[in-house]
Amino acid sequence: MSSSIPTKDAKIELTGIEKRFGKKTVLNGLSLTVPKGKSLVVIGGSGSGKSVMLKCILGLIKPEKGRIRVDGKNMLKATTQEREKVLTKFGMLFQNAALFDSLAVWENVAFGLIQGRNMKRAEAKEIAIEKLGRVGLTPDVGELYPAELSGGMQKRVGLARAIATDPEIIFFDEPTTGLDPIMADVINNLIVDSVRDLGATALSITHDMASARKIADYIAMIYKGEIIWAGPRDEIDRSGNPYVDQFINGRADGPIKMDVLKP
């Protein structure tokens, strides 16, 4: 592995993560560093373990092996209270949004403020409406329920919820999937702003290379449960790695074989 992400000033450090589901190994000794205040984008094929990696960091899935450090703190050894405290630093956009369907849209966005930070409902609602505005949703959408929204709108509400508490660390699992190209670019800008203006550390997953090029400081590629290449954004085109080249150019032929039946 030719890793060229600086390892000093790391916000998140994954070392040798292994995760199996039954007999299937999903993460196979994965190591990755996310530098503080930077935006790292992870690319990789469908089913390669990207979402599982994020969930391991958040403690939603326990890996069998490896070490996860957030701000130098070992998350796998932390007590529940310690982990809960660290989790207040996080914002997470789930791949399928995972909105609370029993709560109105604005309550979803305000959730972290009301429950996590004990903010007054009225005050939290104002912030929620403002965040909804930043993802291109009008205040009246705030009164609807998640089931009344389109897929792309749900994704944007999920985004607004992830950034509502101005977290130090934000995870975006496919932020632009399901959005039209213009809205996708609005979201890209939002992510860039969050990192640049708020100084947040971002870890995103995407299949959309245009988005990756726009939001990333660093890019890493995951293949068969390992990081096979990592480096600054501008170096991805001359990675010299055939797997990376095939992926970023979207070619069916190459070292990565898709298990599809030909007629």
Binding site: L60, E84, T88, N96, A98, F111, Q115, G116, R161
Partner: peptide
């Protein structure tokens, strides 16, 4: 339903037990 749609995971990430 909350479990299979990851809403319970989402709660955890919003610092709510």
């Amino acid at each position: 339903t909350m479990r299979v749609t990851e809403q319970i995971d989402a709660l955890t990430t919003l610092a709510t037990n």
